[in-house]
């Protein structure tokens, strides 16, 4: 497929650095910070506010970059180390609790193949309620919920193997 006028097609995805500040500029700012032996630097350009800081104790250590977009929802925190900037990850919801497997085995969502599952996504759950069974060597181990809340995700498919400590359920903890 050829592009109509030879111009690259705009993906339409707005990277946080796309318009006013790019990666090269960030690197320059970090070098400037080190060169001038500054510990803090703040810059506000259209729609973006950047705050750079580093500790003096370790002058060769990485500079910390705080990046605050104008849209608060999309707030991202970036650590710049040796020129590598990892992709921003969405903030972890502190109200999400994970129920994990206490053993290696097979994960079952129901007490028997013909029974309905113990819980489904969207179900309210209480402390002490059975969420699933993990079986190994005919030890049928019921896994209990240890918080009150709402099942927001089931992370393993019925009948699949699970590892020690593997996340099984995401529970949104109720206040």
């Amino acid at each position: 497929m050829t592009q109509k006028n030879g111009k690259p097609v705009d993906s339409g995805q707005a990277s946080p650095f796309s318009s006013k500040i790019d990666y090269e500029e960030l690197r320059k700012l970090i070098s400037l910070l080190e060169e001038k032996n500054l510990t803090q630097f703040e810059l506000e350009v259209e729609g973006f506010k950047i705050k750079l800081s580093r500790s003096l104790g370790n002058s060769s250590g990485p500079a910390q970059v705080m990046f605050t977009p104008a849209v608060p929802e999309a707030a991202a925190k970036i650590m710049a180390t040796n020129g590598e900037i990892p992709a921003p990850t969405p903030a972890e919801d502190k109200n999400i609790h994970y129920v994990t497997s206490p053993m290696v085995g097979t994960f079952y969502r129901a007490p028997s193949p013909t029974s309905p599952p113990f819980v489904d996504i969207g179900d309210p759950v209480k402390k002490g309620q059975t969420l699933c069974i993990v079986e190994a060597m005919k030890l049928m181990n019921e896994i209990e919920c240890d918080v009150n809340g709402l099942v927001v995700d089931i992370l393993v498919e019925n009948g699949k193997p699970v590892e020690y400590g593997q996340k099984l359920f995401a529970i949104k903890v109720s206040a």
């Binding site: 002490g128 060597m137 049928m140 181990n141 019921e142 209990e144």
Partner: peptide, 25 residues
């Protein structure tokens, strides 16, 4: 007989059933 059937010459003498409940609590 894995995991834990008790057998003598292929015939079952006994069996074991383990059931548990685990909670982070």
């Amino acid at each position: 007989k894995w995991p834990n059937d008790l057998v003598v010459r292929g015939q079952k003498l006994g069996g074991i059933l383990c059931e548990g409940s685990s909670s982070a609590g």
